[in-house]
Design a protein around this nucleic acid. Structure first.
Length: 271
DNA sequence: ACTTCGACCTGTTGGC
DNA sequence: TGCCAACAGGTCGAAG
């Protein structure tokens, strides 16, 4: 469900309802997520006011005076508000009670996500420390990407999806950005020119910015923090369109598998 | 240091 | 209609 635009959409959706609120309690029904939910989470959170809601890579960070709540949505996670007393579904693993009677609910059928507690500086956490730059920041630029690609034999798509290189770019937007940039996803990262990387950097920024503006991509059931779906699906050029005509040249889009993920591209437009 | 691959889970879809 | 394999938005960590 979530790549960067979807996580950003969730952040923007929940922020206005969360900022300034005080956590009054936590109910953990299923602590076995990607990592166990800390068993002292309730004590850590109770009585603390939310100072800020932000995002780093695909993590939602909810900052309090003492520490920080960190949530990852994995493949199928959702974070949204319900009124206290709302019926509990099979995959509603964690509820965070607030001082206004609302619950911030974490749901995740596949349980690839995580609910973690950070002490002190977020960037110092092992899960965040090794991460590359944000794709929409100035730190993600041609010179940087070229340097990271130098000498690498991995397919450029894998490079783009490697969080140590740049965060937030998942399978959908990697496919889209490479198509927009006219680069074959299976080309070795180290053998792509500076000029073409300049184009790729622009395309990554463009596709993410545009997807955020549309509220993300809803494939199945993604909804933002405000409960609305994302409208970027209608703008997808290649993802999910294998066998259909290339929007530019009309030849059938091809599908291959790279690192167990589906890759769709136009063999004519992407070189 | 770099690359590949299995692992973690459940739900949905498509083929026979 | 049923069954089973394959696949789905992520990413860590082990093995080569």
């Amino acid at each position: 469900m979530p790549e960067l635009p979807e996580v950003e959409t969730v952040c923007r959706g929940i922020r206005p309802h969360l900022q300034g609120r005080v956590f009054t309690g936590v109910t953990v029904r299923q602590p076995q997520l990607r990592w166990p939910v800390p068993d002292d989470l309730a004590q850590r959170l109770a009585g603390q006011r939310v100072l800020a809601v932000s995002r780093r890579a695909k993590y939602v960070l909810i900052s309090l005076a003492e520490g920080c709540l960190m949530v990852h949505l994995g493949m199928s996670g959702r974070l949204f508000f319900v009124a206290a007393g709302t019926a509990v579904g099979k995959h509603d693993h964690v509820d965070f009670a607030l001082d206004n009677g609302q619950l911030l609910r974490y749901t995740d059928p596949r349980r690839f996500g995580a609910v973690l507690w950070l002490e002190g500086e977020a960037e110092a956490h092992p899960l965040l420390g090794h991460l590359g730059p944000e794709p929409l920041s100035a730190d993600f630029n041609v010179a940087y990407l070229l340097a990271r690609a130098k000498g690498r034999s991995v397919p450029v798509k894998s490079l783009l999806m490697d969080g140590r290189v740049v965060v937030g770019v998942g399978n959908i937007y990697a496919n889209e950005a490479l198509y927009m940039a006219g680069i074959r996803p299976d080309r070795a990262a180290g053998k792509i020119s500076r000029q073409r990387y300049a184009r790729l950097v622009d395309c990554v920024k463009q596709v993410l910015t545009s997807a955020i503006a549309q509220g993300g991509t809803t494939l199945k059931d993604f909804v933002g923090g405000d409960g609305r779906p994302g409208y970027f699906k209608q703008e997808l050029l290649v993802y999910g369109r294998a066998g259909l005509p290339c929007p530019a040249c009309g030849s059938a889009l091809r599908e291959i598998r790279q690192a167990q993920r589906s890759t769709v591209f136009c063999a004519r437009c992407q070189r």
